[in-house]
């Protein structure tokens, strides 16, 4: 078995949850499917808009459709063998356990800080042993040096953690997708039980 076959075979029996299918969630999902994840659980209540196309993994002919439905279609075009459980609904404390309770790892990919906060607290209370990978702070362009990973037990936070004025500093593809890829890479690191490769 080659190294890449070994990795995809490990990932093929793993289940990852993604809370939100926007700029972070849609791109994390694509990276995980390309890596060979076996099962994805994705939930979002939103529909695809034209404004989403500057950073989210959707196409113009999908505008107006529920995000999870369009995303499922796009992911299965990459790999039809992937099991994609998609819920077109808002994530709440009432359904979060059913959605993510059996996932090996969970990615937080909400838009609003308030949603990030209740989800982080809820997951830490109910599933303290389950890794939660969050995104916080990725607006604008430039200053990539400020983007980092903060590790706090089973909680991982990717981004610059800097507050910006949403009207002045929009969300753009490079920084959003960069943070999404950091989240996806952490999923691989945790699922493959490997420490990051050190430069010698």
């Amino acid at each position: 078995m080659t190294v890449i076959q070994n990795i995809t075979s490990h990932l093929s029996v793993k289940k990852a949850g993604i809370a939100g299918a926007g700029g972070l969630g849609s791109n994390v999902a694509a990276a995980l499917v390309r890596s060979g994840i076996g099962h994805l659980v994705i939930a979002d209540f939103d529909i695809v808009t034209k404004a989403n196309l500057n950073r989210q993994f959707y196409f113009e002919d999908q505008v107006g459709r529920p995000k999870v439905e369009a995303l499922r279609e796009n992911l299965l075009r990459i790999d039809p063998k992937t099991e994609v459980t998609a819920l077109n609904s808002r994530i709440t404390p009432q359904n979060a356990g059913d959605l993510f309770g059996t996932c090996d790892v969970v990615v937080e990919a909400f838009d609003r800080a308030g949603e990030k906060q209740w989800f982080a607290e809820w997951m830490t209370r109910h599933y303290p042993d389950k890794p939660l990978i969050m995104g916080s702070g990725m607006a604008g362009f430039g200053n990539l040096e400020s983007i980092h990973i903060q590790r706090s037990g089973n909680l991982y936070i990717c981004g610059d953690q800097r507050e910006t004025d949403e009207k002045q500093v929009p969300l753009l593809a490079p920084r959003v997708i960069l943070v999404a890829m950091m989240q996806a890479d952490l999923v691989l690191e945790l699922l493959l039980h490997q420490r990051p490769v050190q430069n010698i």
Binding site: G25, M134, A139, S152
Partner: peptide
Amino acid sequence: LDIIHLVSGG
């Protein structure tokens, strides 16, 4: 002690 900032956007 870990203090994490949660910022909107994603």
